[in-house]
Amino acid sequence: MKARLAEWIALLRPGDYVMLLGAVVVCVLSALALWRGGAPDKAVVRAGGKVFAEVPLSRAQVVEVPGPLGVTRIEIEPGRARVASDPGPRQYCVRQGWLKRSGAVAICAPNQVSLSLNGGSADYDSLNY
């Protein structure tokens, strides 16, 4: 068995190993590049049903959205976003924490504010927690 294997390996020349390695690298890189589905690139903030702001997820910033109850603070960081504070009574959207995937949505219904992540190839139409 071992001798058989050695016989096959003897057929490989030095450049063949390089070629094989290159092929494996192409496989891995293409998988990483093409199967990064769900990586969002922008956050859409809505207030009262209208788009309030579209923010790229490239740098950290805070968006303050006025609503009927007060100001909802939305925190953006590279690759993720969350509702940092909200005047609503039950705080569901705040407790959702960081949204990281495309299609994820946090809704602060009492204050009529929503945050959703878009871009990339969304795995889902919307994500709820």
Binding site: L12, P14, G15, D16, M19, L20
Partner: peptide, 18 residues
């Protein structure tokens, strides 16, 4: 036309498959 000493049929086969 790759140098045969270094690249055998396996290299050609992988290139052809890609």
């Amino acid at each position: 036309h790759l140098p045969r000493r270094w690249f055998g049929p396996v290299s050609l086969s992988i290139l052809a498959a890609f």
